[in-house]
Design a protein around this nucleic acid. Structure first.
Lengths: 98, 98
DNA sequence: TACTTATATAAGTAATGGCTTATCAACGTG
DNA sequence: CACGTTGATAAGCCATTACTTATATAAGTA
């Protein structure tokens, strides 16, 4: 969710926290996780920390996802399987998907 | 993680649970979540339930992820930004990424 | 029908996540 | 240097997640 914001433009912690319905520490903590996952980087500007997306880490993640997809497609090709007879009754919730 | 297994081949709950370090109900519960998220489907084979990846739901998810990536790339193009001066000291953990 | 196999569901619990407030450290400014 | 601003960290709380064991349901088999 922070990623979505940072995708629009690099921002300081304060700017991010200002518009979100959570406290500044919450934002800092979230950003730390993203930083450790190498999804964002930061640049110091005086007392401020300007966060932006980390291209390298995001690309790594993208590579993983892509490889998963190709694996999926490969698997489908391998099994030549169109599972469309055994239907399901209940489908309630959707994933929030980030 | 179950997705990785199912990517290799469709399997029954028992087969999945057999190799994993968790109980069968844990697997069933996990599968239910995946089913509600439309990431897997099932086919009945006697008393067995053979689970496999749900192409349609996965494609939906993929579409979201791809749109995010294009947004990322677009943002980079827009800002023409190579954030490479403000380095970071500590990068400890990596995300397990699913 | 009784017994076994395969899976789902229920109920309870421990671990985790995501937030809060309080506080600390670093920098900028008078 | 004292003070305000900005952000990170600490500690605690509460909701959710991810598991467990026990039990129910449904199908296969003798």
């Amino acid at each position: 969710m922070l990623l979505e914001r940072l995708r629009e433009q690099p921002q300081s912690v304060g700017e991010l926290a200002h518009r979100l319905p959570v406290s500044q520490p919450a934002v800092s903590q979230h950003l730390r996780v993203l930083r450790e996952a190498r999804l964002v980087t930061l640049r110091k500007d005086g007392a401020r920390r300007i966060y932006s997306l980390d291209r390298a880490g995001l690309d790594e993640l993208r590579a993983y996802v892509e490889s998963f997809w190709s694996g999926v497609l490969g698997a489908y090709a391998a099994h030549a399987e169109q599972p469309r007879q055994g239907a399901i009754k209940d489908e309630k919730e959707r994933c929030n998907d980030e």
